[in-house]
Write a protein that binds this DNA or RNA. Structure first.
Lengths: 234, 234
DNA sequence: CAACAGGCTAAACAGGTGTTCAGTGTTCGC
DNA sequence: GCGAACACTGAACACCTGTTTAGCCTGTTG
């Protein structure tokens, strides 16, 4: 077998042989296992999946928490890369759906969902990035006249991201796929069921009058006018 | 083996006037502990909270799973009662918010959220009941001319419930309150932040044109006219 | 009074957990 | 060749888990 354990990894795009190292195999197995069974999965389970001994997992990563962190970093790096590559075709809040369709990435999507479920770092980071992106996209959409302006753009974006990701998370949690690996099936089912009402709500709204909105505005006072200066901590 | 507590007495029908009994104290402590720390909390933790020995917990409930089931039943019964009492003032998807404001019920709300997070029975039941209720309320709202009719009423209701509960769950998961007991603070913060954009979306929509909706309708074919009841296979 | 019953507990059990340790080979620089 | 560094493992350790066992203690009943 090749040694080639030099720290310098070749950034070759096509030939990527060095991911057969035990460390990489463990990391991949851990991401998959955590996505499947949640972060309570045992080190022994990860080791078995990777075909190594539990001691080797600790030897390479130091502890289970460190392994968890390494998985987080790994997935975050993958998200950053995927975001760059899919910038064009995945607009707005549909990044996850697009990614989930690629079987290759499905386990990673599962990991993100698990992290959101557990309130972990990856989930938080993913949601925040999603909000930042969505803010940009909606601003463009407003400029182009595709989307209506909002009384509070930032708050609207937060709401849109929270409701879309939250509903997806809830749907997957309530109706977990038989094989925990193919999250894409669950995501697809979610989209099939709920895409129409979402689109309908987005184009036509839900209420017939402005009464509730106006009453609320009167009650809480005016929201930040247009481009709010800054938001002091409450 | 001799069964210590004769299984003759059916729980629920037994008239237990003093809820100061150890069994009741354990049940209450378990609901609170599970809401606080999730269902991974140990039997010993519950026992300590209740001021009893771990053995007594098992003695009264048989096993940890049985204790979990008993908690579920307890909370479900409470939900049913609260729904009956608050039918009038809590309309639509705002039941949880109303209930969360009553400090007395806050831990129970926390339990419901935990169960939704874990995909447990209480969460599932709660969501389904919520959908049933919301369907009734929106039907009334449509009749009264307050809400616009939908291409698929059932799907819209499901979407509304999933997005409101899902966004709440995600918000609480991402920003857990310092003291896990007062969920009401987190719920209140969620409402303060996201109620305006929600209301805005409901009254004005988001998109300026019907193009995306029409394109989608053309793509998937017409939705079930009126009361469609079929579930498309994946 | 004695005898029994049941709520209740301390202690232990069996099993799983993350982690450590001593010791395999195998490979590399000298 | 040598010795060191390396990836790697089986076995153990200490701890925590749910659960069981034996027995205490109190109240009731004969």
């Amino acid at each position: 077998m090749r040694s080639a354990t030099g720290g310098a990894e070749e950034p070759g795009t096509v030939a990527a042989p060095p991911d057969t190292s035990a460390r990489a195999r463990i990391l991949e197995a851990a991401v998959l296992r955590f996505a499947r069974s949640g972060f309570g999965a045992s080190v022994r389970a990860v080791a078995t999946d990777a075909g190594v001994s539990p001691a080797l997992v600790i030897h390479h990563f130091g502890s289970k928490d460190k392994l968890h962190e390494a998985c987080d970093e790994h997935v975050l790096a993958w998200i950053a890369k995927s975001k760059r590559e899919n910038m064009g075709k995945a607009t707005g809040g549909r990044l996850l759906e697009v990614l989930a369709q690629a079987d290759e990435f499905a386990p990673l999507v599962g990991y993100v969902l698990r992290s959101m479920q557990a309130g972990g770092a990856v989930g938080k980071s993913f949601v925040e990035h999603m909000i930042d992106d969505a803010e940009k996209y909606t601003a463009e959409a407003v400029e182009q006249g595709l989307a209506k302006p909002s009384l509070d753009e930032r708050a609207r974006v937060r709401y849109l991201v929270y409701s879309s990701l939250g509903s997806l998370l809830l749907s997957v949690t309530m109706n977990p796929p038989d094989d925990p690996e193919d999250v894409n099936t669950a995501v697809r089912a979610f989209m099939d069921d709920l895409y129409l009402p979402m689109l309908e709500l987005f184009t036509e709204g839900f209420l017939t009058t402005r009464r509730m909105l106006d009453d609320y505005l009167l009650y809480v006072g005016d929201p930040p006018p247009g481009a709010g200066e800054d938001e002091p901590a409450a």
